[in-house]
């Protein structure tokens, strides 16, 4: 989890604070998972044709657990932060655990019931996105791409 810096922003637009939580901005500034992998077990490329955001996700497995995640591409703060949180959170998780987290985030975005036992960590900061419906796709892009990587698809477009 990203270490929070001292509060240092001039928050002149309070209604935006729910969308751009400090954790989101921190992940955006210093995204996790930017180290390329020496061995790739699963990978997929995702894009949001609406805005041109692109993400390439690679996973390395060891002992049935995700050992390393590499994520690259370009996008807005929400999509980059979501990808960074993904890279940070999925390390050390089994595929099933990772899938559960992904489902949980999707349910939150679409205002459905979620499994309260799952620890969402920094992902909780993304909850504010659901109040900005056009940005939900940004938050979900890395996770949709992750799911596609698992089923072996090389390319996914979300619509």
């Amino acid at each position: 989890m990203i270490q929070m810096k001292e509060k240092h922003q001039s928050r002149s637009l309070p209604q935006l604070d729910e969308l751009y939580k400090e954790i989101i901005l921190e992940h955006y500034r210093k995204p996790c998972g930017r180290e390329p992998l020496d061995k790739v077990d699963f990978c997929a490329e995702g894009m949001n044709p609406l805005c041109g955001d692109e993400v390439k996700l690679s996973l390395q497995l060891k002992d049935n657990k995700i050992s390393k995640v590499h994520i690259e591409g370009h996008g807005c703060s929400i999509s980059v932060a979501s990808g960074s949180i993904l890279a940070d959170m999925l390390k050390g998780k089994t595929i099933d655990e990772a899938k559960n987290i992904s489902n949980c985030l999707k349910n939150i975005m679409h205002d459905k019931e979620t499994d309260s036992k799952i620890d969402l960590g920094d992902l909780e900061a993304l909850e504010g996105v659901k109040k900005f419906p056009v940005r939900i796709k940004c938050a979900l892009l890395p996770w949709t791409t992750f799911e596609e990587a698992l089923i072996g698809h090389e390319h996914v477009e979300i619509s």
Binding site: L13, Q15, L16, L19, Y20, L50, C51, G52, D53, G75, C76, S77, I78, V80, F132, R135, C138
Partner: peptide, 21 residues
Amino acid sequence: VHPHDIATIVDQEGIAIRAGH
């Protein structure tokens, strides 16, 4: 600052601009 973020922020001020490709 990504264009989407700019568009969302100025939208909060009632301003419609375009962001994207």
